[in-house]
Nucleic acid binder design. Structure first.
Lengths: 138, 138
DNA sequence: CTTGAGCCTGTAGTTGCTACAGACCTTATA
DNA sequence: TATAAGGTCTGTAGCAACTACAGGCTCAAG
């Protein structure tokens, strides 16, 4: 059966390669409904087009920016609906940005405690340790 | 059967309450071997002592500082072995600290991109959106 | 015609919990 | 003493977001 794998259609590995996505993750995104079900060859092989490439890139970029799958699903719904407004997208972005800032603040607190404990450590061949004191109770 | 639940021994809920740990998490830490199996009453109820309280607090503090379960297991092994050295603990702490700093750097990069995209947004009732441009390709 | 690569499916594993269901035990009150 | 309410027990399933198989097709090259 002649498919157009060498023409416009991409197989899964090629889609993965072009987007930098893990091979199995492609299938995973399809399973959870983030990627539309692609057409298949007669033998059942998935055939992807440029729309799949851009959608997958969108998802991957959003993931890199720390958006959760559900957040991305929401963004995609807006885009797919075609009636998204900049205001709505901006609001979601700022909500996510504020989560990111909270995480940074949490990690900075951790960093300070760890750095202080490590600094108080002699680092010697002795059983007493400032880190353990920090962990065992103040 | 007389147990000493009201004396020195604590039941699970009380241990959880005193440490701020979730009730089920206590059992989870036991299952994965982070907490020693406590003695039981004749009816099978767990009975905890002050050693369990301190160990659980240790684990919880280390978790708050972002140590993974495996890292904590390593620390506890050192402490339990009794031959831990400050140098060893310090090294592990600094390794973890460097992971934390990497995460902070990653998040700061994300923060910058998100903030820039949101700033370029008009926020109006229009379909064009700077955030979407960021996600759809540079 | 065979070999090897690539694809298919379903499922299990990862991390660190959290939340049940259904059965037992304990305690207080009537 | 009966009973109702609560605590505890076990095992198991679920969460996010993948990742990695096993076992079976299909396809192209030699």
């Amino acid at each position: 059966m002649s498919d157009h794998a060498s023409g416009r259609g991409l197989r899964r590995a090629e889609l993965a390669r072009r987007t930098g996505c893990n091979l199995e993750t492609v299938r995973y995104y399809e399973k959870i409904g983030m990627m539309p079900d692609p057409p298949r060859t007669a033998a059942g092989y998935r055939v992807y087009g440029s729309d799949h490439v851009s959608r997958l890139k969108f998802i991957l970029r959003a993931r890199e920016l720390g958006f959760s799958i559900e957040e991305i699903r929401g963004l995609l719904d807006l885009v797919d609906g075609g009636d998204q407004t900049c205001a709505e997208i901006k609001e979601r972005t700022e909500r996510h940005l504020s989560n990111v800032r909270t995480k940074i603040a949490d990690l900075r607190r951790i960093e300070i405690v760890l750095a202080a404990a490590a600094a108080r450590c002699s680092g010697g061949d002795v059983p007493d340790c400032a880190v353990l004191e920090t962990l065992e109770g103040s």
